[in-house]
């Protein structure tokens, strides 16, 4: 095997770990980290999307607003969660929660875990692109601290639609990509079989994002991956979230927003 080939194989191993069927999902982390989670439902416009969940939750002596992408574990739950791929309703429910967080000054904690927004005719008819775009602005302007933690898969605009914030944390074996490797291989080569090659080229591992300065911290996972010890993974995630939240809460809100703007402004800046 060539050197390049072994790097590609190692990258693909990360992709598979990020998608491991036994990996803890958002609700596993939420119940482990927060004292009192009350799930809110519905976008007040069309329906309730079970691929994006959220609501207020207790963290130490404060309330935070949790927004999360949720995958299903059983066949029935996978169908109910639409495999973690949200429709516009999911993003509009998230928008409702962002506005509410702002009103009550709850910091926002977003858990990203999706292969992407749902590619469906209904999603297009109801403006999936519009819903995501609106969230990008709402998150950029929300006058509360925002932490994003990628749990497993961070897929494209569908991830970014709840993923703009002040800090980007990634679980050690999570990935975050402009497109999932299969989609990228399909776009570039019209051949899904070249997904391994695409995965390597995309630079999508937590380590890659940290190297590029896009991720702030990698949260360590138990040996072999988070699926081996949910408690340990949640403890590490909880500790990292508390630490970053404390830092952000000490920053004046105008400064916080300017820093958040510059955080994205400088990506790809030429001067």
């Amino acid at each position: 095997m060539t050197d390049n080939g072994s790097i590609a194989a190692a990258t693909w191993e990360q992709v598979e770990l990020a998608r491991h069927p036994d990996r803890p999902y958002a609700l596993d982390y939420i119940h482990a980290i927060f004292g009192n989670f009350f799930e809110l439902h519905g976008d007040r416009l069309f329906g309730d999307d079970h691929a994006i969940i959220g609501g207020p939750a207790g963290l130490d002596h404060r309330t935070v607003m949790v927004i999360a992408q949720q995958k299903g574990r059983t066949t029935a739950e996978r169908a109910m969660r639409n495999f973690g791929m949200a429709n516009p309703e999911g993003y509009r429910k998230a928008l409702r929660l962002i506005r509410q967080a702002e009103r009550f000054q709850f910091p926002i904690i977003a858990f990203v875990d999706t292969s992407g927004a749902f590619p469906g005719a209904g999603a297009e008819e109801r403006g999936i692109a519009w819903a995501i775009a609106e969230n990008l602005v709402a998150l950029a302007q929300a006058r509360v601290p925002i932490l994003t933690l990628v749990l497993g898969e961070g897929g494209s605009g569908g991830a970014l639609g709840i993923g703009v914030g002040d800090r980007l944390l990634m679980m050690e074996h999570s990935i975050y990509s402009v497109a999932m490797p299969e989609a990228c291989a399909s776009i570039l080569w019209r051949d899904i079989a070249r997904k391994v090659e695409a995965a390597q080229a995309l630079k999508l591992t937590a380590a890659d994002l940290k190297r590029m300065g896009l991720a702030d911290e990698i949260v360590p996972e138990p040996s072999g991956g988070a699926q081996n010890d949910y408690g340990m993974a949640a403890d590490a995630a909880g500790a990292a979230l508390r630490r970053h939240l404390a830092t952000l809460e000490a920053v004046a809100v105008d400064r916080l927003l300017e820093d958040r703007y510059q955080r994205y402004r400088r990506i790809g800046a030429t001067s």
Binding site: L160, L202, M212
Partner: peptide
């Protein structure tokens, strides 16, 4: 890659 995606934000 991700540098592209972040241009959306």
């Amino acid at each position: 890659g991700m540098l592209s995606l972040m241009q959306m934000a």
